[in-house]
Design a protein around this nucleic acid. Structure first.
Length: 518
RNA sequence: CGGAGAGUAGCUCAGCCUGGUAGAGCGCUGCGUUUGGGACGCAGAGGUCGCAGGUUCGAAUCCUGUCUCUCCGACCA
């Protein structure tokens, strides 16, 4: 393992020193996940999984709250190879990273070692799902008969496997957890409406719940999902100024309906080919959360998703009578706090009666990103007050016990807002409009190529629309077009030149977002 | 999958060059003293040195193979 530089404050490498080491240490010290014995796969630990459960609960409610609502279902982990064969463009997109099941039984060889039983070779190999369009398409072709069956709006929460060569906890693992929505529509307009509706849910979840600002856009041909007509996405900027695709929504057109014969009888008594969409977000969002809000002291969590909202650290609680006094003082406070809810979730409050000294407890909860830490000592009990520290600022404040209980939702709301604002100004500070290739190259080139410092960001620049131009930039600088913005000022048409080649930018298209990406 | 680095206690690492049978700090357990931002004393537990072969009287150390992780590329949510 590479040597990890340490700072004496937090024991963590700093982001500026070594961003990658910082990320990995935050995942470790916050007890989110660890590497498993299986190559490329992670163990998600209870605190990390609690975060995922909160993400899941929030999104699940949003999916079910649409009109008409989406419903959850579950489809098999294994996909017959022939299903992938039916939509080759899609299959080719995943071919390089598929796990293939070839046998269904083990036996022992002459040395007593376990081997796949040659007698048990499958007549048709099974692919561990890298995504489920094909197997769900097969079901949908049976479920959809009439225009009355449409729209069909299904989501599944599942694990998927993509045999990645290079993995990083949460950001890219061979197996990951996600949700994948799959829908069927009577016409192109309704499918388009659906893919945009789900994109908007992702945007508001990212911004309102994760406090992570995103750019809403469309992928270029070369970046879109294989098999889709077009792909929408939300793109966020991490603190190393690289882009993270945080969610995607695909309008699949009639590609999968054609491959899997998803047809319906219309009102006009005609057999019609349906239109489908798919959309998903994954445990990668947790990586995004870490890299959007984390600081050199560790994880920082938005209150809307934090597994623990408030950590209470009693001072002097080892002796029975001291602990009893603390418990008596805290009982009404805990009751008041736990009866409240933030972003639809009851407040989670932990009292740390552990053996460590108070300072050690502060550091531990700070590393875990808990939004508010509260300190209650004998002096506070005497005066009926609590001392609290916001994770976003660190200064100690004092409030009466009752006032704190009354203010709690405001405090959490302030933290939620501060995190969003901080992330948005960071992104805006590192987003530039450029029209000149030399400036573009300089922007994306580190001063020290041997140990690249954090550099670059988002460039808003013109694009001629030519894929070979994209390829040339990617080859030269590892910079790609993250998206073509479709919302707000960013989506205003641009009539200048392509920042890469100087030819006129595509008419009616806005400046596109160029960046290095995860 | 290419290039580079690294696998020794839960974590961070020393020991390897020059072979002689396992170390430190932190963490963990017990007892005591402590407790308002990483406490201290005493006593303990914990490692077939990534794995498999080989050389040797003897391997953490030398050789071969293999697996895994990290970083940089290619590919990708």
């Amino acid at each position: 393992m590479a040597k990890k530089p340490q700072t004496k404050d937090s024991g963590l490498p700093t982001r500026a020193e070594d961003y990658s080491a910082w990320y990995q240490e935050v995942v470790r010290v916050a007890e989110l996940a660890e590497h498993s014995a299986v190559r490329g796969c992670m163990v998600i630990k209870p605190y990390g999984y609690a975060l995922w459960e909160n993400i899941k609960a929030n999104l699940d409610a949003r999916f079910k709250a649409t009109d008409p609502p989406h419903q959850n279902a579950y489809f098999p982990l294994f996909i017959p190879k022939s299903f992938l064969q039916k939509e080759m463009e899609h299959a080719e997109g995943f071919a390089l990273e598929c796990a293939v099941v070839t046998h269904h039984r083990l036996t022992t060889d002459d040395d007593g070692k376990l081997i796949p039983d040659p007698e048990s070779k499958l007549s048709e190999e099974l692919i561990v799902r890298p995504t489920s369009e094909t197997i769900i398409g097969e079901s949908f072709s049976k479920w959809v008969n009439s225009y009355r069956d449409l729209p069909l709006l299904i989501n599944q929460w599942a694990n998927v496997v993509r045999w990645e060569m290079r993995t990083r906890l949460f950001l890219r693992t061979a197996e990951f957890l996600w949700q994948e929505g799959h829908t069927v529509h009577a016409d192109a307009e309704d499918a388009e409406r659906e893919s945009l509706q789900m994109l908007e849910i992702y945007r508001s979840f990212a911004e309102d719940t994760m406090a992570m600002p995103v750019i809403v856009g469309r992928k270029t041909e070369s970046e879109k999902f294989a098999g889709a007509d077009h792909t929408y996405c939300i793109e966020a900027m991490m603190q190393d100024r690289k882009a993270l695709q945080a969610g995607t929504s695909h309008n699949l057109g009639q590609n999968f309906a054609r491959a899997f014969d998803i047809t319906y009888l219309s009102k006009e008594q005609k057999q019609e080919l349906a239109w489908t969409t798919s959309w998903g977000v994954s445990t990668r969002l947790i990586g995004g959360l870490i890299m959007t809000h984390g600081d050199d002291a560790g994880l920082v969590l938005p209150p809307a998703l934090a597994p623990v909202h408030v950590a209470i650290i009693p001072i002097r609680c080892k002796k029975d009578e001291d602990r009893a006094a603390a418990e008596r003082f805290l009982a009404p406070l805990l009751e008041a706090l736990r009866s409240k809810a933030f972003h639809g979730r009851a407040l989670s409050v932990e009292v740390d009666y552990g053996k460590d000294r108070p300072g050690a407890k502060h550091f531990a909860w700070e590393k875990k990103g808990v939004p508010l830490r509260v300190e209650v000592g004998p002096r506070d009990i005497e005066q009926g007050q609590v001392v609290y520290v916001k994770r976003t600022h660190g200064g100690k404040q004092t409030l009466s016990r009752e006032a704190f209980a009354e203010r709690i939702l405001d405090l959490l709301g302030e933290i939620q807002g501060e995190l969003y604002e901080r992330a948005r100004s960071f992104r805006d500070e590192h987003t530039v409009c450029l029209d000149d290739r030399a400036a573009f190259d300089a922007f994306f080139t580190p001063r020290n190529p041997d140990a690249p410092e954090i550099h670059g960001g988002f460039v808003r620049g013109g694009w001629c629309g030519d894929a070979s131009c994209e390829a040339e930039v990617k080859d030269a600088l590892r910079v790609t077009i993250r998206c073509i913005p479709i919302e707000g000022e960013l989506a205003e048409p641009f009539s200048g030149a392509c920042v890469a080649c100087g030819r006129p930018a595509l008419a009616g298209q806005p400046r596109v977002i160029w960046a290095k990406a995860y």
